[in-house]
Amino acid sequence: MRLPVLNKSAGACSKSPRPAHPGMTRRSFLRRGAVATGGLAALAASLSPLRDLDGTDSFSVQKFLQKHYKEMSPEEMEGALDRIRSEVERRYEVRPEIRDIKAMDGVEFVYALNLSRCIGCRKCVHACVAENNQSRDPEIQYIRVLEMPRGSIDIEDGNHHYDRPTVPAEGHYYMPIQCHQCANPPCVKVCPVEATWQEPDGITVIDYDWCIGCRYCEAACPYWARRFNFSKPSLPKDELNPEMSYLSNRPRQRGVMEKCHFCLHRTRQGRMPACLEICPTGARKFGNVLDPESEVSQILKSKRVFVLKAEVGTLPRFFYYFDERDPFSQMTPIPAGTEGGS
């Protein structure tokens, strides 16, 4: 869309080296001039990202000097949180309740999803967006719901662009995919700066202030669970969720990765993830796998669960299962007029 402008300036540039009566001094003068112009323009171009910085963007010395999450002392973390608080307040006019919430002892989170129940309504997708302050435009969604032809569990047969008057559609089932919080995460291994790592409770997190945006982790993830902020995230002020934590849903900046973190600001305080609470069908299950009485432990014990792409060795903490069909609903009706029951 900006190409006409470009062509005009390029044309102007290319005329200057060929004057009507070239003389040596004049030519060298022009040459030097052209090189200088080029150098200046290149310098300007290299600085041009700064143009995008307005008052709301954080380009503070404090942030520049901030340490890696794991190396920050409690006071330094408090300082970082204060900086984030004032940045968010400046930009969204809301004072966030941001904390650094640590993993709980004796807890390892696991997710299970009942494919017999999911109907593909995508409420989880949008509840997640609202909870986790994802960018609305350009749009970032952590959960992707695949519409699968019945009989296949090959996710390559899935379609996530389905749009129908109503779901579920005949002959299909639905498979939501989000970060699987692998026990052997390829994304963590490829990160050149250790901006993403696995926490003791199994959640793989990202320090958005440490991420350099190289997108290696995005390429390494076999589940396509990581999202990149190509441009400055935008969300309406009144839709900001002020309940935040450092490693989860605080607002992100352009050029960093983000992904599902099992709503750690909720789950590390005992609550359920937002996608589970919104699910009208109850297909989503979450809990502590180290507790033998938890719902997820019961599922791992009593259902035939599977993981996606088990062959790539990522050891996901996100399990799928099907129910056996309720035998009662396969019975043939008693002819009308006959007395049924006792």
């Binding site: 300036s9 540039c13 090189v35 112009t37 323009a41 300007a44 171009a45």
Partner: peptide, 12 residues
């Protein structure tokens, strides 16, 4: 030099 200028124009 020309290449730089053009590139700079493009990026700008």
């Amino acid at each position: 030099g020309l290449g730089f200028v053009v590139l700079a124009c493009v990026f700008w």
